[in-house]
Structure formats: structure tokens, C-alpha cells
């Protein structure tokens, strides 16, 4: 098992997903077997091969610097679970 409980908890913390104690074991073993399976790639010789990040044939399109002055705050805030005085509100953060 390459993903032990601590690793699972560490990754879960990184991606902000709470893992309950009773889930850790099964999850760790599932993650381990998935990783074991994808490691099949190590059989492939990839020396001097450039990674392929995107298959689009497009060239990066450039936008003109035109500003949209429309106030979209109503739209942007319309789905917010909590909004106060036109701000999104979240539990207090202490820096």
C-alpha cells in the first residue's frame, strides 16, 4: 500500500476535503490500487518525448483591451450562499 493513512489525510487537506476516520482505510487502499494501476506507464520509454498538454490546433487568441463598465454584481452575487452589503461573506479569517 503506497498511500498510507497519513498521505491520504495530507492530500485531503490540500484539496480541502474532510475525510472521516471510518473512510480513511478504504479510501487509502482504493487510491493505492488506482496508483498501482496507472504506474503501468513506467513500462513506456518516454526519453526525449515532449509532454502533450493540449491538442487544440488554435493559436492563443488575444483580446483587445476594452473594458466592460457594466455593474454585474447582482448577477454575480445572485447564487451566493451568504452575502452581506454586496460582499460575499465567509467565516472569519484570522491572518
Amino acid at each position: 500500500m503506497k498511500i498510507d493513512k497519513n498521505t491520504t489525510l495530507k492530500i485531503a487537506k490540500l484539496c480541502r476535503i474532510k475525510v472521516r476516520d471510518e473512510e480513511i482505510e478504504e479510501l487509502s487502499s482504493q487510491l493505492s490500487s488506482i496508483l498501482d494501476w496507472v504506474e503501468k506507464l513506467n513500462e513506456v520509454n518516454t526519453d526525449n518525448i515532449e509532454p502533450l498538454n493540449n491538442v487544440s490546433i488554435a493559436t492563443l487568441p488575444l483580446r483587445k483591451d476594452k473594458e466592460n463598465l457594466q455593474d454585474q454584481s447582482k448577477e454575480v452575487l445572485s447564487n451566493a450562499p451568504e452575502k452581506l452589503e454586496n460582499y460575499f461573506a465567509v467565516p472569519k479569517v484570522v491572518e
Binding site: V38, L41, V44, T46, E50, P51
Partner: peptide, 14 residues
């Protein structure tokens, strides 16, 4: 070891 490797294999498949 994982992501970069997979993207290289992706090139080979392409």
C-alpha cells in the same frame, strides 16, 4: 513521475 509522464505518453498515443 505521474502527470508529466502521462502527458508524454499522451504525445505517443497522439
Amino acid at each position: 513521475a505521474y502527470y508529466m509522464k502521462a502527458q508524454k505518453v499522451r504525445r505517443l498515443i497522439s
